[in-house]
Computed example of a mutant assay.
Amino acid sequence: MIGLVITQISVILLFLILGWAVRFKKAYWLISGFASRPEIEQEQLINSGYPQKTGSLLIGTAVGMLVLLPLSFTGFRFAMEVQFGFMMIVLLGGFIYLSKYEVPSKRKRSYIIALILFIVTLGPLIYLTVSSHKGYEMALAEDSFEISGMYGDEWDYRDIQSVQLLEEMPEVTWKQNGIGLPTLSQGHFKVTGYGSSLLFIQKGHTPILYIELKDEKIFVNSKDSAETESWHKVMKEEADIK
């Protein structure tokens, strides 16, 4: 939580300083590619207001993020998504808008590049966000169990080394390859005392089912504690039998 807030404040300060320098101190060289342009193009851009509006865009983004920052101190679970989603949409949308102030000979190309960047950047982010909020499902079959969704797979009961029902989730130290949201951890994470583990965790819900396989460690739970307990009962029986 503290690390996230520090990151947000750092980004806000960075945008404010850059925007102020460009907009009010005419440090146009801070704009990517501006300094390498021919002087005649630089003059055209300055006359059209391109660099000044770029500075205003950065300042406006910073102010918007600052207004949204208090969400991090409330019980709103999607504060991070709202804040960084706002940042991405405003910046990428702003660069599409700024294309109208490009030099005429490069205006069309600027629109196309900005639009492609908008789609390529936001498309996967939207997909990942929607997919991650769908979560996962556990299915218990006769000889195996399966966890659906991102990072999910199917495992045989005979590969289970041990099954435990934990009262709380052990400390997760860092994310290796996965999705870490305020409400969900899904993917590969480092867990204190267990090392690299595969997590399918609905945060704030207990108990936690720990499954140790021959070559993998899995933590999974359901929002319904009774369902998690039923998974534990079935897997314990199957692991003993197989």
Rank of each mutant, 00 (worst) to 15 (best):
F86T: 03
F86Q: 03
M87E: 08
M88F: 14
M88D: 08
I89Y: 01
I89R: 01
L91P: 06
L91T: 09
L92K: 08
I96R: 06
S99A: 06
S99N: 01
K100S: 14
Y101I: 12
E102G: 06
P104R: 01
S105P: 12
R109Q: 12
I112S: 03
I113W: 09
A114I: 07
A114P: 07
L115Q: 12
L115M: 14
I116K: 06
F118L: 07
P124E: 03
P124N: 02
P124K: 03
L125K: 03
L125Y: 01
I126N: 00
I126D: 00
I126K: 00
L128T: 08
L128Q: 10
V130L: 01
V130P: 00
V130C: 00
V130W: 00
K134L: 05
G135C: 00
G135L: 00
A139C: 15
L140W: 05
E142R: 08
E142F: 09
E146K: 02
I147P: 02
S148I: 04
S148T: 10
Y151T: 02
G152S: 05
E154I: 15
W155P: 02
Y157F: 11
Y157K: 01
R158P: 11
I160L: 02
I160V: 00
V163A: 05
L166P: 01
M169G: 11
P170V: 10
E171L: 13
N177L: 07
G178R: 07
I179F: 10
G180V: 13
P182M: 04
T183C: 14
T183Q: 12
L184Y: 06
S185P: 07
S185C: 13
G187A: 15
G187R: 11
F189P: 04
F189D: 02
F189C: 09
F189E: 06
F189S: 06
K190Q: 10
K190G: 03
T192G: 10
G193M: 07
Y194T: 00
G195P: 04
Q202W: 05
K203N: 08
K203A: 05
G204T: 12
H205R: 11
T206L: 11
T206G: 15
I208S: 03
I211V: 12
I211Y: 01
E212L: 14
E216M: 14
E216L: 14
